[in-house]
């Protein structure tokens, strides 16, 4: 079993993933996307990897790198289709709407004049968001027409070309909190509640986290959302949910390279361990898939084993960690998400 971790910055999350790879005795290599040179006519340098885990902080670099690995026949986590589906809020919203998964009402406009019409159609207050980026950056809540005109003009004049896509969403009058659920495959493994007196509740913006009980509604909503962006089998995702009064849970955003450092302690779940276990279990390999067919599909808690002395095969890891229930999904047989 050989895994590459594609990265730019090495944050706490990447360190934790590396620690888990090491503790499981998985042969792994760090690949800095900034130093990468692909000869697209020669895949030999890369085909020894069973999987490449994308942890790039920049979506453009991630997508380019992952596309090359996929064309070389190397399994990527998450795949390019998932990065495209989650990294662009417009695509995420379209997929939620198409699959009839509850999500905030959203309008798109491609010109400043029509953007104002879109805001008026949504009604006040409305939220304008850039279609890419995260951590609550550049979100704007507009409470009236004057504010909408000002924000739209500023975006049109000062923003990059990406800001000419006006993504307008209803403001959901949620409690002073939102929910973040960590999904491995299609399974909601744990979640946090992010509290903040500010309407932007991201922990990156000062929101405080506490543990979230995973209810059947959360489990169902997240499984459906994971299938919508990744197809059967899901992916490694962090799904943000809003509690809309009278409407239940709305899928707000889906993150494809989730940050989890502040969520391990409140949830008590070893999130990076579960991520690596899933990558191992779902990597291509007929022996492990065979083993999976005879395994009862139940949730398996992470058990921290002492570091092994030498790298082990995927089949041995699947057997030892009892991961067969996840290995039932073949990542390469996913239906295309259109």
């Amino acid at each position: 079993m050989r895994i590459a971790l594609l990265h730019s910055r090495i944050r706490v999350e990447e360190r934790l993933l590396l620690d888990e790879l090491a503790s499981l005795g998985i042969d792994h290599e760090l690949i800095d996307v900034r130093e990468l040179v692909f000869d697209i006519h020669d895949a030999s340098r890369w085909t020894s990897f069973d999987a490449v885990i994308d942890r790039c902080i920049g979506q453009t670099q991630a997508l380019a790198g992952v596309r090359v690995f996929e064309r070389f026949g190397v399994r990527t986590v998450n795949p390019a289709s998932v990065i495209e589906a989650c990294g662009d809020k417009l695509t995420t919203s379209l997929l939620m709407a198409r699959h009839e998964i509850p999500t905030p009402r959203t309008c798109i406009a491609l010109d400043e004049a029509s953007a104002l019409a879109a805001v008026e159609r949504i009604g006040y207050p409305a939220v304008l968001k850039p279609t890419t980026g995260s951590w609550g950056r550049l979100l704007a809540r507009v409470n009236d027409r004057d504010a909408a005109e000002a924000v739209i003009e500023h975006k049109g004049t000062l923003g990059s070309v990406q800001h000419s896509v006006f993504y307008v969403q209803e403001y959901v009058p949620k409690p002073d909190r939102d929910l973040r659920v960590f999904v491995v495959g299609e399974e909601a493994i744990c979640g946090i509640v992010r509290h903040s007196a500010h309407w932007i509740t991201n922990t990156a913006r000062g929101g405080v986290a506490s543990v979230l009980e995973i209810t059947p509604e959360i489990r169902d909503r997240c499984a459906r959302a994971a299938r919508a962006v990744a197809g059967p089998g899901g992916a490694l995702l962090a799904i943000d949910l809003l509690e809309a009064p009278g409407r239940g849970l709305l899928v707000s955003e889906i993150n494809h390279t989730m940050e989890f450092r502040n969520s391990i302690a409140p949830t008590g779940v070893n999130i990076p361990r579960r991520m690596i276990e899933w990558v191992v279990a779902t990597a291509p390999g007929s022996a492990a898939r065979g083993a999976a067919q005879s395994t009862v599909a139940t949730s398996t808690p992470s058990t921290l084993a002492p570091p092994p002395s030498s790298p082990r095969s995927r089949a041995a890891l699947v057997e030892e960690l009892k991961l067969g229930h996840w290995a039932a999904f073949d990542a390469h047989s996913r239906t295309e998400v259109a």
Partner: peptide
Amino acid sequence: LAPEVEEDWGE
């Protein structure tokens, strides 16, 4: 000094 956050950075 680490680079400033760029437009397409995120989770």
